[in-house]
Design a protein around this nucleic acid. Structure first.
Lengths: 249, 249
DNA sequence: TGTACATAGTGTATATAATACACTATATCT
DNA sequence: AGATATAGTGTATTATATACACTATGTACA
């Protein structure tokens, strides 16, 4: 059988993990994250998860979580495994961003990386807590440190894909807890799109979908009128989508 | 310096090259393609370029053009090189589709491929003519033979990306000659989107862009009233786009 | 030469979607 | 009790999308 004898590049996966770093909503009051897990961000910001490298090259620099793909491992499985190992995250949204393969992107040898966009719900899964061993942290997307390799380009590609996807698919709910306020949804759209939206028009559009169902609960521990909590009817969404419906907000 | 000693996968590039196979427009009357270059397609169809493999595995089967990435070669450069070698195509539109890396997608060894979407203008560059040595041909997207490896999935991903891109970017003009009729543009949208469009509304929308400029020429050698030829004002488009304009059709 | 045929080219009325915009309600905090 | 902070609500206007049918102009051929 024919086989290929020329040198092979190394292949890695890297994950641009986005989360919403926000004052914890009162509906689940315990386990507030420690302040030193957050870097240069104000509540309500879109953040990226970075780890500090402990090996050369770029030892000490911040980088995206990721690592080498095993020889018999599926790419997505590798991304999930590396994320689990380095950050303890499970149960997250994962979507491929693409391959990055400039010949000089890694000084050791030729390394082609397959980048993934991940979204993690920081309300239900306090991620940084599981990463104390390897220095890890959430950084506001507008306030990133210098990154190792070409990871700045990967983050930029992730943001671009987020912006492109957010209007056509209900991915914002991947960031939010099961029960959320409409204000949270709007703030998230604003953070991702980088523009501010009209409150009444935005809510009109959300309500028109009939997919955001109000609950008999309101948020707690806020110093003002409490907002009603809602949930996203994913089941109904999947059913509608099967019939050709497309999310649009 | 640290280096990675585990086995590396092979990395390839594969190109889903799309073209518009159509009765040659009269504005450039010579060099009609031979009929035996076309397979199972009627004029005006969206087609994909396939080559017949002469090596194992899948010897004899149809496959996407592509091949191994050299150890110091950029991914996009590898795609362009392979396309040039196998099909003689130059000067085409190229966009990454993503990485395909299921562990068993190649029976020889672990092979991860980076797939590209390419569009070629068959009016100005008669591609198949340059490929007589290796059996190559254009196949209608709805009439593909069984393909080697996971290339059917790659073609499907390419079609999906075409459909997603065509509304937000003026990529249709990558398929068409410099001078084209409005009917050609509409047919192409219809072929890509798989739905039929209203002639008057479509032309209204095209005209509203002010980017489709009518020429003082009409098509020739047609058995009916000749349509006016137009060109796409790419220069003006790039200028508008730099100011935030987005194509929308 | 004239008539059948094939496609080019054109406008208006209606429905739907997007935008702009400001006040009242309800909770906390002091 | 009053200050403050956010929740929550509707209408009028504008822009965009859709539905729809006839005339114009060339070729082919009887």
């Amino acid at each position: 059988m024919y086989s290929y004898h020329y040198p092979h590049p190394a292949v890695t996966v890297d994950c641009a993990v986005f989360g919403l770093d926000e004052a914890r909503p009162a509906s689940s009051g315990e386990d507030a994250r420690r302040d030193d897990d957050r870097h240069g961000t104000t509540p309500g910001n879109l953040t990226v998860l970075l780890i500090q490298r402990d090996l050369e090259p770029y030892a000490g620099a911040w980088a995206l979580p990721g690592g080498f793909v095993k020889i018999d491992e599926d790419l997505e499985a590798a991304a999930l495994r590396e994320l689990g190992e380095e950050t303890g995250v499970r149960d997250l949204y994962l979507e491929q961003l693409g391959a990055f393969g400039a010949p000089d992107r890694d000084p050791r040898e030729r390394v082609i990386t397959v980048a993934y966009l991940a979204i993690v719900n920081l309300f239900d899964h306090p991620v940084a807590a599981a990463t104390d061993a390897r220095n890890a942290g959430w950084f506001g997307v507008d306030d990133l440190p210098a990154l190792a390799f070409d990871h700045e380009r990967i983050v930029a590609a992730g943001l671009e894909q987020l912006r492109a996807t957010v209007r056509d698919e209900p991915i914002v709910f991947e960031f939010l807890p099961q029960e959320f306020t409409l204000r949270q949804v709007q703030s998230l759209y604003e953070a991702i799109l980088g523009e501010s939206l009209d409150k009444r028009n935005f809510r009109k559009k959300l309500h028109a979908t009939s997919l955001i169902v109000p609950l008999d609960e309101v948020e707690m521990d806020v110093a003002h009128r409490a907002a009603q909590l809602h949930r996203f009817d994913r089941e109904r969404y999947e059913a509608l989508r099967a019939e050709g419906y497309r999310w649009n907000a």
